Amino acid sequence: MQLMFLGTSAGRPTRSRNVTSIALSLPEPQCGFWLFDVGEGTQHRMLGSKLKLNKLERIFITHLHGDHIYGLPGLLSSRGYFEGAGPLTIYGPQGLRAYLDSIFNLTGVHLGYELHVVEITEGEIIADDRFVVEAAELQHRLPSFGFRITERPLSGQLNLKRLAELGVPAGPLFGKLKRGEDVTLACGTTVTASDVVGKPHPGRVVTILGDTRPCENAVRLACNADLLVHEATFAGGLEEKAAAYGHSTFTQAAEIARDAGAKRLVVTHFSSRYDDEEVAELANGVKGIFEQIEPAVEMAEINVPRLPLTNS
């Protein structure tokens, strides 16, 4: 799993930063990706990346402020020009469907693929064979959501030596055992999956939050996450200003990561008053609160690796 930051600026673009969008590339064999927010210019940023719109599977909109959604209609329209663009589902706050319907009706857009818009509430919004995605409302000037993406565990590796000792023939029985099913051989011997399959490999957890003041749901969504993405619009010491606009400071983002027990924190959504050097200094300045903090960099990829498999 990898994250690419297609925009890291708050409110408006700058010469070096676009407005908010994050791509989450999924592991093999799917190799698709999800988008979290689609600020103006997102599809232009994608042209300089390996991301292709026909591989886009889902879009998550944290809230309806323009710097998070003004690029959405154009990107959806462009996706129709890509061969193999299948159905697409968008998840976001109430009002998202009316926003898109109004633009598409007024401009006569024909997408050429199925588009599903799901206006979310708090709780589990996706549960498939790969991932569980949970949403919770944060504290901002508009309804704003955060998302916790939990990868389902991978089954352990087969113990080929033990399978040979037990006389299990290669083929469909291997698949059943790997899925955790006990099997009975032609001779009548029952082979239990736990005897020939290693321990499951825990999935990764990535938490991506929309704009927010510090709040309990931010900590809950980020609990023990492998990676937390949290906004840091203002420098520490500007907490009163941040609260007035529904945002957080670098200090507050570090405190959320610490309180949640997250393993790693990437901050983004920087005020245009700070250049890249100042952003780096602000992040370094709160390492006493949370050591594993780093600022997001435009178009940079951040890998979320698996821990090595451990077999029983």
Rank of each mutant, 00 (worst) to 15 (best):
F270R: 01
L227H: 06
G261L: 12
A186Y: 06
G71R: 00
T189Y: 11
E278H: 10
G146M: 02
G108M: 06
L282E: 03
E151C: 00
F174T: 03
L154P: 03
F174W: 15
I126H: 01
Q157H: 13
Q139T: 12
G180R: 13
Y245C: 06
V304W: 01
E301I: 09
R258C: 11
R58Y: 07
R273A: 14
A164T: 15
E119D: 05
D101P: 07
R58M: 02
L166D: 06
I149L: 12
Q43K: 13
T42Y: 02
V297W: 08
S9T: 05
A193K: 10
F234I: 07
L307V: 11
A254V: 01
A244F: 10
F290E: 01
C31W: 08
L166R: 01
R152F: 09
Y113G: 04
R141W: 11
L166P: 06
H247G: 11
I149N: 00
T268C: 12
S271I: 01
L221S: 01
I289H: 04
G188H: 08
S77C: 11
G188W: 07
L154V: 11
N303V: 15
L111W: 05
A254K: 00
I22M: 07
S9F: 03
L238H: 09
R220E: 14
F147C: 04
H201I: 14
T251P: 02
Q139A: 13
G41K: 01
G123T: 04
I69W: 03
V19W: 03
E40G: 15
T14C: 08
A283V: 06
C187S: 14
A242M: 15
E291D: 13
A127Q: 10
E278R: 14
T310Q: 15
D211E: 10
R45S: 12
E124D: 08
R306G: 03
T107M: 08
H269F: 09
L106N: 14
L227V: 10
G48D: 09
A296I: 04
S25G: 12
P93R: 02
S144R: 04
E134C: 11
E28V: 07
T62M: 06
D195G: 06
C187D: 15
D67Y: 08
D37I: 06
H140V: 07
